[in-house]
Structure formats: C-alpha cells, structure tokens
C-alpha cells in the first residue's frame, strides 16, 4: 500500500494529468483508505510542487499541471471517502473577482496557490455580484472570503461586500488583492488581510486560520 501512495504523490509532482485518475482507481479498487491516499499522496505531492514554485525552481505551468493532476485524482478519491469522514484541509476559501470586473488571471493564480498549499478553494469566477458573494458566504460557511479587483472603478465593490458580511457572518475573514489595491486601501475598507501577490495570499490565509 505504501508504494502505490508514493506513486500517487509522484504522479502529482511529475504532473501525470492523463494517467493519475487510473492510479487513483487502482487505489480505490485495492481497498486502500482514500483519506490516506489524499493526505499522504496528493496533499504531500502538491505541497512539494508548491514549495518548488515558491523557490523559483519550476515554472507556473508546472504548478498548474500539478494542481490539475491533484484535481483529477480527487475526483476519483473523494466520492470513495466513507460518509461522515472528510479530508483535512487548512480551511475553506471562497474566491471571486468582483462585479463589473472580468480580470481573472491573478485570481486564478491565487486559487491555484491556495489549493496547492492545502486549502479547499471554491472559485465563483469573475463579475460576481456582491449579493452572490454574501449568499455563498452564508451557505458554504468558509473560513475566508477572498476578493480580487483590478480596476479603480471596481475596487469599492469589495468594501460593499465586507461591511454587510461583518454583520451577517462575522466569523468569515476577508482577504483582498489585485493590482490597484494597496495595504492602506485594504485597511480603509475593513479587510482582514491584503497581499500583493499569490504567495503572499497563502501567507495571509494561513495567518487567518492559524
């Protein structure tokens, strides 16, 4: 059993996107605990990939392919997890780009970095209405709500979400980012954390759940 879990871990590190699902199926068929496979295989694998990227040893496409491989295996392993049990994550993050803003590249990178560092990420996409952010925060009860805004005209939308969120779901923490957003601005609108790049976003998120 040890060996096949190590193989799963390596399949993430070597981003074997096309074949990793088969490997995951074998694991399920062999009756190995899917939670062990997720935690010792996938989570360990993606952690290694994330660290390598952080150190500048690998390029972004390698990080993304690693994350895609993890997703492909999770799609097989998660449904096999016995009822009542759940995989351990660092926390749940709901993320999106605010209303009237369609810039998505930065937001997608933040999502990838967060999930490769052990967070469960639910991505709402771009041009997300304030009401939808608030609704999802209520429904999914995430630890963190993360918002991206790339334009001066859409930045105020973040404040528009944070203010009611604090009343409705005070336990949900907020992180904001995007090129025009500054530390000072983030404080002004009452965000809990701000970061200028994707690896900083991970540090911020860890701080909030830690």
């Amino acid at each position: 059993m040890e060996e096949i879990v190590t193989r799963l871990k390596n399949a993430v590190i070597n981003y074997e996107m096309e074949t990793i699902a088969d490997l995951a199926k074998q694991i399920v068929d062999q009756g190995i605990d899917p939670l062990v496979a997720i935690e010792e295989g996938l989570a360990e694998g993606i952690k290694t990939v994330g660290e390598k990227f952080g150190k500048g040893e690998i390029f972004l496409p390698e990080l993304v392919m690693g994350a895609e491989s993890m997703k492909a295996a999770l799609a097989v392993l998660e449904p096999a997890v016995p009822q009542g049990q759940a995989r351990k994550t660092l926390g749940k993050v709901v993320i999106g780009t605010v209303q009237d803003d369609i810039h998505e590249i930065g937001k997608n990178l933040v999502s990838t970095m967060l999930s490769s560092n052990g967070f469960e990420v639910i991505d709402l996409g771009v041009n997300v209405q304030a009401a939808d952010f608030l609704k999802k925060a209520g429904e999914l009860k995430p630890n963190i709500l993360a918002m991206s805004a790339l334009m001066t005209t859409t930045m105020p939308r973040m404040g528009e979400i944070i203010t009611p969120l604090k009343k409705e779901n005070p336990s949900v923490k907020t992180i904001v980012g995007g090129a025009p957003v500054t530390d000072v601005y983030a404080k002004e609108i009452g965000a809990d954390e701000y970061s200028g790049d994707a690896s900083g976003a991970v540090d911020s998120a860890k701080k909030l759940v830690g």
């Binding site: 209303q99 009237d100 209405q129 304030a130 009401a131 005209t153 105020p156 528009e160």
Partner: peptide
C-alpha cells in the same frame, strides 16, 4: 452612489 448594489452594466 456606488454603494448599495446597483450595477454599472
């Protein structure tokens, strides 16, 4: 007032 959910689009 850009506060209160009205859309620019």
């Amino acid at each position: 007032p850009l506060w209160g959910g009205e859309s620019k689009v």
